[in-house]
């Protein structure tokens, strides 16, 4: 059988999701954002919600998410995406409303908006990319930076006496009465990506069923600012991030 015989439309088994358009993404090579963008695109389309999705992008690397996924987007001020989403969902209860935020945006400047939106039980999903660093601004310390981890603003390693401790936002979210589903996933292997996709789908479905707020944390990499190759960054994440940010569902009240 020749390659040409295999490459036929009827034999297609995987292609870039349709909602992810052809605009080249600005993300660094190997960045986790791209995988999560694909998953979000797939889930929105599979749920048949393309016409009813309103997404909110943050300030940070994902600020331009609106250029890549073909749904309606609002670009929020730094940290405020959950406030936008709260209003949008209350004004448009039949819409699928989600925010897409990084750890600087969600766990630092936007902590208040995040916790209060989740605690009010807004029927939204927050997708939280946690790569333990500020990517867009050039690798500064984030609230989620691990102890001992070096960044350009803690070049000798994060020291709890100087910088306090890495913040476990999903653990906090799970304690809030308003949250329905809180989960922590990764996207560094095929199996992990499948699980992460199921988590996003579950969160979106719960939000549409009016079961409360949902947080899907994706423990991610930032190979550029971690100063590693993409492959090495995935290994480092597994060895260092995952022990501090354990994977799995922290709460599932939607069952």
């Amino acid at each position: 059988m020749t390659r040409e015989e295999i490459i036929q439309a009827e034999n297609l088994v995987y292609r870039k999701p349709e909602l992810l358009n052809d605009v080249p993404m600005h993300y660094c090579p190997g960045c986790s954002h791209g995988v999560v963008h694909k998953l979000v695109s797939e889930v929105v389309a599979e749920m048949g919600m393309t016409e009813k999705t309103i997404a909110i992008s943050p300030v940070g690397c994902a600020v331009f998410a609106y250029k890549y996924i073909d749904v309606d987007w609002q670009e929020a001020a730094h940290g405020r995406a959950p406030a936008l989403a709260s209003a949008v969902k209350r004004l448009w209860p039949d819409r699928l409303v989600f925010t897409y935020q990084g750890d600087g945006d969600l766990a630092c400047i936007g902590t208040a908006e995040t916790i209060h939106a989740l605690n009010r039980g807004e029927n939204i999903t927050i997708i939280f990319i946690n790569n333990a660093i500020y990517g867009m601004t050039g690798g500064q310390m984030a609230p989620t930076t691990l102890l001992g981890m070096k960044t350009v603003t803690c070049p000798y390693g994060r020291d709890p006496k100087l910088h306090g401790y890495p913040l476990k936002m999903a653990d906090i979210a799970a304690q809030l009465e308003g949250t329905c589903y809180v989960t922590r996933q990764t996207v560094h292997t095929v199996a992990a990506i499948r699980k992460a996709k199921n988590a996003i789908r579950k969160a979106f479905e719960y939000s549409m069923q009016g079961k409360g707020s949902n947080l899907v944390e994706i423990v991610s990499t930032c190979n550029t600012n971690w100063r590693m190759s993409p492959v090495k960054a995935n290994q480092w994440m597994e060895e260092n991030m995952v022990p501090y940010y354990p994977l799995g569902d922290l709460k599932d009240n939607g069952k």
Partner: peptide, 9 residues
């Protein structure tokens, strides 16, 4: 991450 690969089977 960039959706570059299409697969046929």
């Amino acid at each position: 991450p960039d959706g570059c690969i299409t697969v046929y089977r």
